[in-house]
Design a protein around this nucleic acid. Structure first.
Lengths: 194, 194
DNA sequence: TACCTTTCTTGATATAGATCAATTTTTTGT
DNA sequence: ACAAAAAATTGATCTATATCAAGAAAGGTA
């Protein structure tokens, strides 16, 4: 499946676009291939694009007093970008980095706003997309707050085993809120030496 | 200021409604006064309403293995409700409880959906409201993850001193992620005996 | 293939914050 | 205003996880 079809499926799952709307909307997106380890945005920059991850993995993180905290990952079929910066077009507090080679689609701020102005179906897509992201973020907040490190490890391990293949352990450790050492020890207890 | 004017100001700050739109929209909201300590929704129920807090304070929390985790508070001018349940009309994982007597406006699910269908301006309001909530939630996630208990206490203390008057300490403790005992000790260090 | 860099592992030790327990203070209901 | 209940305080411990340190494994590069 090509990237635009992939995108169309994702958008359509939340709000139906007519062929005409889709034609206009889809023409605004560009393809970008980014090598592993590159940043698509860093703290202080203003997010000019909204991204769709067609293939590969990216990581969002913040730096706090030099400590790197992984906040989330995006894979196939996820949208990404520094939302805190995009909506108000002011500098971001986030970094987003590729963890593998990544194939992205991206749309510029002005284009997307024009699409929202022009098509109610897209305004709706935006509303529902944001609502779902919000709900997911709420779940994650509960996750981080109400489980022990061990429980968080197990939940990651049971719910997203594939992620162990895709993302370096130190980032997963930070994501679930523990040190790489603790993560490694817990991993060993479950999997042993393999 | 009456509750509906309060609501109109809040909605207008994100998306302008015409007088006609407002007339239709505002007619769908009901006023409710709820006594302190009541729940407006509890785990397992399906959220039928979207709320606007005109006056008073509410607390959202989850119960995890019997442990009560405060996830957020809503005050004057905030919207509230179990979002995880409302959008998809399925049972919620959250509880929302009044912490003081509260004056609310509420709109039913079908009415709100009809408003989204009918008015693009409201669809836009929904999109931007959700986006802002999402950004706020992201900030909060970083907060909980990258600061020590002491730093979290200080940030709450410096950024929202008013909350100490409004919300019982044990809920604040849970909100910033520590026990009431730890919270009390930190409070003493800053304020002393008063 | 060998070299260099980064990531992961493992052990020893330290510590922030939790837990347990016993008042004291504040709030609530009558 | 008083009794009962709930919340907050304080002290004494305990423990899950962090930190520190050093070696092993994995990955990239020439």
């Amino acid at each position: 499946m090509d990237a635009l079809t992939h995108l169309r499926n994702k958008v359509n799952s939340l709000s139906k676009l007519t062929d005409q709307e889709w034609e206009d909307f889809s023409s605004r997106w560009d393809t970008r291939v980014i090598e592993k380890g590159q940043h698509i945005i860093q703290v202080g920059q203003t997010e000019k694009y909204f991204y769709f991850v067609h293939d590969g993995v990216m990581r969002a993180y913040v730096l706090n007093k030099g400590v790197d905290v992984s906040v989330g990952f995006s894979y196939n079929g996820d949208f990404s970008g520094a939302y805190d910066s995009f909506l108000d077009q002011k500098p971001t507090d986030w970094n987003i980095q590729t963890i593998s080679q990544v194939e992205l689609l991206r749309i510029g701020f002005a284009d997307l706003m024009e699409m929202f102005d022009r098509y109610k179906s897209l305004e709706r897509w935006g509303r529902i997309f944001n609502a779902q992201a919000l709900i997911g973020m709420g779940r994650r907040q509960v996750e981080v707050r109400s489980f022990s490190a061990e429980e968080r490890f197990d939940r990651l391990f049971n719910q997203s085993p594939h992620i162990f293949q895709l993302v370096p352990q130190k980032y997963l450790a930070s994501y679930v809120g523990m040190t790489p050492e603790t993560f490694s020890r817990m991993r060993r207890q479950r999997i042993g030496k393999e």
